[in-house]
């Protein structure tokens, strides 16, 4: 496609769905999220089936620290809002502000990830609670770790997009890419809502 069709003088209202490629990406990504739902459901189900199997190791209510989880939750929730801001500026064709808000999103994401790494190291070194301690341990680290993996991948994805497109600005070729990256980021937040509810809060309640 020529540059002209990708960089029209007036951006359409929904630049992410203005081309067939964009429409395809948009739809495919939603379908993918439908599949991801089943993936996380399988992990949640496994966790729920195994959360009592502590094999003599620490149990959920003994180790979880809600303060930390609360801070992590706030970081991730806020990052969801900032990525909404980024998309708001994308729709208004304001590339600079979009990059800015994506940058904030990335920083918040990195903050979240650092806390999670700290949390895991703390459990491993101070609580003697590892992936191999018990079936509960395996299930906990796998579920939360899969989410952490998604966060990491999302961060790398957004950073790559930002750097790659820093110089050339927004066009109809990369708008869908930014849009689905932000969808992915929201989905990560959706999963986290269930993790902090089901794993941490309900784990603490017992």
């Amino acid at each position: 496609m020529s540059d002209h069709t990708l960089n029209p003088e007036k951006m359409p209202h929904n630049p992410e769905k203005a081309t067939l490629e964009g429409k395809n990406k948009f739809l495919a990504f939603w379908f993918f999220l439908g599949g991801e739902t089943v993936l996380f459901a399988s992990l949640f189900g496994t966790y729920l089936a195994l959360k009592g199997s502590t094999n003599g190791g620490p149990a959920a209510e003994e180790i979880f620290e809600l303060e930390l989880v609360f801070v992590m939750t706030m970081l991730l929730l806020t990052s969801s809002l900032t990525s909404v801001y980024a998309m708001y500026h994308m729709k208004n064709n304001n590339f600079g502000k979009m990059q800015l808000w994506l940058g904030v999103t990335v920083l918040l994401g990195i903050g979240f990830l650092s806390f999670e790494i700290y949390e895991f190291t703390n459990y491993i070194t101070n609580e003697d609670f590892t992936f191999r301690t018990s079936a509960f341990g395996s299930a906990f680290y796998t579920l939360v770790g899969f989410h952490g993996g998604h966060v990491t991948f999302g961060l790398l994805w957004i950073i790559t997009l930002m750097i790659r497109n820093a110089k050339r600005g927004l066009n109809l070729y990369n708008a869908p890419k930014f849009y689905i990256a932000s969808l992915y980021w929201h989905f990560i937040d959706v999963v986290w809502v269930f993790i902090f509810t089901v794993v941490y809060l309900m784990g603490k309640v017992g």
Binding site: F26, G34, G35, T37, V38, F40, A41, S42
Partner: peptide, 23 residues
Amino acid sequence: HEMPAFMFYGGLTVATITILTLS
């Protein structure tokens, strides 16, 4: 967003029965 909603709810249905079963 009809198609996305349809497929997402499809996933959600399977997800629900999966969690229900395993727990």
